[in-house]
């Protein structure tokens, strides 16, 4: 029985098929988990396949592969969503608010105590953080009809915390200043 099987395996056609099956079933299976990969069936049960190098359909595959890093935004005449590319360099104002790696303005809302305390956090500040704090506080106090607002500056990590939810206000303000 064993000799018979060996004789079948040694025929050149089956040899080629075996090579193919190995490249299909062992090489790729290494990437999947051992448990999820199927056991190798008798060779006759596999359909005949052809391997296409540089097929015309490869462009559809490439379309499905994600970019490695976040793509740079391209210049457009208009941005209907309200998003704007950063234009300010911070040279005239003395401070600078960098964009995040997703090209967004780093203004966030932090809620604590089940939403009872809301903090607006401006991140990624460089340069004269105290001047920016004065500017932002003025904007916030104007929207509060002159009522004072509490802020906290962390110079080490380049953050300003503002008491209350002023995310939209400050984001629009920073965008209007080109940050």
């Amino acid at each position: 029985m064993a000799a018979n099987a060996k004789a079948i395996v040694n025929t050149p056609l089956l040899q080629g098929l075996k090579q193919l099956v190995r490249s299909l079933h062992t090489d790729c299976a290494r990437l999947s988990s051992f448990r999820s990969s199927r056991e190798v069936q008798p060779l006759e049960e596999y359909p005949e396949v052809e391997v296409l190098h540089n097929p015309p359909e490869w462009k559809y595959v490439e379309r499905l592969l994600p970019p490695r890093t976040v793509p740079q935004p391209v210049a457009k005449p208009a941005y209907p969503s309200g998003w704007k590319p950063q234009t300010a360099t911070g040279q005239e104002s003395g401070y600078f608010v960098a964009r995040t790696k997703n090209h967004m303005v780093p203004v966030y809302l932090n809620t604590r105590f089940r939403g009872q305390r809301r903090l607006t956090i401006v991140r990624l500040i460089q340069g004269d953080i105290w001047a920016l704090e004065r500017d932002l506080r003025q904007v916030v106090e104007q929207s509060r009809n002159g009522k004072l607002c509490a802020t906290r500056v962390n110079e080490l990590s380049g953050q300003i915390h503002i008491h209350g939810d002023y995310v939209d206000l400050l984001r629009e303000h920073l965008k209007s200043k080109g940050f």
Binding site: L24, D27, P47, V49, E50, L52, H53, V61, L65
Partner: peptide, 12 residues
């Protein structure tokens, strides 16, 4: 789809 060799294996 074989991403390493950039090949597509189809049924003959």
């Amino acid at each position: 789809i074989n991403l390493v060799d950039k090949t597509i294996v189809k049924l003959k």
